[in-house]
C-alpha cells in the first residue's frame, strides 16, 4: 500500500484553520536512567517535532532534572504533547511557558571564526556589538561566546559567515518563567 500524504488522507491532523505554533515546555523529571530516552521516544514515536531540547540536573538532593523543550504544533497537538509527557511515570510536572505567562529564554553558543586582516577586525567589532566574548584566540582565529535569544544567535552566526565562520556549538534553549514563583 502506498503511504497517504497530507492531501489524500481522510484523517486530517487538525482542522485547516489551526495553525502551527511554537511552544517552550519546561519539564521536571526524576533524574534516573532512561528518562531522556522516554521523552525523546515519545516525540519520535508520536511524530512530534523537537526544535530544541536541553536537560540537566537542577536539584541534586532530590534527583530532579529539568528539561526545556521547544516544539511546534497545532494547539491540539501541543496539548497532546503536554498530556503525553505528564503520562510518563518519572515526570513530575510539565509547564507550557508559552501560555503560562511571561517567560525568558536564552541560549549559549560558541562560534569559531577564522580570518586575517579586515575580516578579523570586523568580526571583533561585530562581536562587541553583540556582547559576545572572546574565549579563545590564535593568530588567525577566535572563539566567541555569545548568550541570548535564539534569533539573536542566528543573526550573529549569519554575520560571521562571510567573515570566516568555521563551526558553531549551541546549547539549545533554556527557559524560566518571570516573577517570584517557581514551577
Amino acid at each position: 500500500m502506498s503511504t497517504p500524504d497530507a492531501t489524500t488522507t481522510h484523517y486530517p491532523a487538525a482542522p485547516a484553520s489551526e495553525r502551527s505554533e511554537r511552544h517552550t515546555l519546561s519539564v521536571l523529571v526524576d533524574n534516573e536512567p532512561g528518562v531522556l530516552a522516554r521523552v525523546i521516544g515519545l516525540f519520535s514515536g508520536r511524530g512530534y517535532n523537537i526544535e530544541s531540547l536541553t536537560v540537566s540536573e537542577t536539584e541534586h538532593q532530590k534527583h530532579l532534572s529539568r528539561m526545556t523543550i521547544v516544539t511546534t504544533g497545532t494547539p491540539m497537538v501541543i496539548e497532546q504533547i503536554r498530556h503525553q509527557l505528564e503520562r510518563l511515570v518519572p515526570v513530575h510536572r510539565v509547564l507550557d511557558l508559552t501560555v503560562g505567562g511571561p517567560a525568558i529564554d536564552r541560549e549559549l553558543a560558541m562560534v569559531k571564526v577564522r580570518g586575517k586582516g579586515d575580516n578579523r577586525v570586523e568580526a571583533l567589532r561585530l562581536a562587541d556589538a553583540f556582547r559576545a566574548r572572546v574565549i579563545d584566540a590564535s593568530i588567525e582565529s577566535f572563539v566567541f561566546e555569545i548568550t541570548g535569544r535564539s534569533d539573536k544567535i542566528d543573526q550573529f552566526v549569519d554575520l560571521m559567515l562571510p567573515l570566516g565562520l568555521v563551526e558553531v556549538s549551541r546549547t539549545g534553549v533554556v527557559a524560566i518563567s518571570r516573577g517570584p514563583l517557581g514551577m
Binding site: 481522510h10 484523517y11 486530517p12 491540539m76 497532546q80 498530556h83 503525553q84 505528564e86 503520562r87
Partner: peptide, 24 residues
C-alpha cells in the same frame, strides 16, 4: 471513521481517566 464528518451535529462530553485521551 472519517474524522471531519464524525457526529457533526453533536456537543461532546468526554469522560476519561487519561487526560491525553481528551482532545486527542
Amino acid at each position: 471513521g472519517r474524522l471531519d464528518a464524525f457526529a457533526p451535529k453533536s456537543k461532546k462530553i468526554h469522560i476519561d481517566i487519561d487526560p491525553s485521551s481528551i482532545n486527542k
